[in-house]
């Protein structure tokens, strides 16, 4: 059961925009914007947040992200009053980065703890992920040949492709290294069309992880 997301904002436009952006990278995740007040003003509306929470709760749990001040309190109250199928958490995260990271994690099949962690770690330095660099790790170099390189949508595809795999996977570009499951870290590599990346994987599904990245790169991330 996929984790759902609620975007709580003082502005209806902001909530809708963040939901739209995250949705593009995670098409199957239920993402509900809950912004503005019922009469179209700026503000956070308890009833709207509760309704959004109910709408995306399919049993796998719901993660709520918020913009400022009272939005956090309203989100917490909605969670306390929620008696739906799954658990619900309010996470402290940068709204845009957190929503994108949470959506991609949810799309990859992460549970509510995994989705919450993805959101809250979005504020951390996106690169310098350290993979176990033992000699038994699998590694492969590949050259990107899609127009935008590891930009938002390709990075999301790559991160999602790691879902369900028992493997630690790092993507290296120059001096930098990123967790292949973190869409923000992958974007932080700034790898462009024509650049060489190295994929390093360890764990039982390491070879499958590399094969999946290889397939995406060869298909030009389906651009």
């Amino acid at each position: 059961m996929t984790v759902g997301l609620v975007i709580v904002s003082h502005s209806a436009k902001l909530a809708e925009g963040v939901a739209e952006l995250a949705q593009q990278m995670a098409p199957e995740v239920l993402i509900a914007p809950a912004g503005g007040t019922a009469d179209g003003e700026l503000g956070t509306d308890y009833d709207r947040v509760c309704a959004a929470l109910d709408r995306v709760d399919r049993g796998g749990g719901v993660v709520l992200l918020y913009d400022l001040g009272s939005a956090q309190m309203i989100a917490e109250l909605a969670v306390e009053g929620h008696s739906g199928a799954g658990e619900a958490f309010v996470v402290e995260a940068p709204l845009v980065e957190g929503a994108v990271a949470a959506a991609v994690a949810a799309q990859s099949g992460a549970d509510i703890d995994g989705v919450s962690r993805a959101a809250s770690s979005a504020a951390e330095a996106p690169v310098d992920f350290v993979v176990d660099d033992k000699p038994t790790a699998y590694r492969a170099e590949m050259v990107l040949h899609n127009e935008v390189g590891l930009h938002a949508r390709p990075a999301a595809l790559l991160a999602r492709a790691m879902g369900g795999l028992r493997a630690e996977v790092a993507v290296r570009h120059g001096e930098q290294q990123a967790d292949a499951r973190s869409v923000l870290a992958l974007m932080g590599l700034a790898a462009r069309d024509g650049d060489t990346i190295e994929v390093v994987a360890s764990g039982p599904d390491a070879r499958e992880a590399i094969a999946r990245v290889q397939a995406l790169v060869e298909r030009g991330f389906e651009e």
């Binding site: 007040t37 503000g43 956070t44 509306d45 308890y46 009833d47 001040g69 009272s70 309190m73 309203i74 917490e76 109250l77």
Partner: peptide, 15 residues
């Protein structure tokens, strides 16, 4: 109060 007051006062007094 939570539904109608808005701002920070609504959730705080409501709580």
């Amino acid at each position: 109060l939570i539904s109608k007051v808005g701002g920070a006062s609504g959730p705080l007094l409501g709580t």
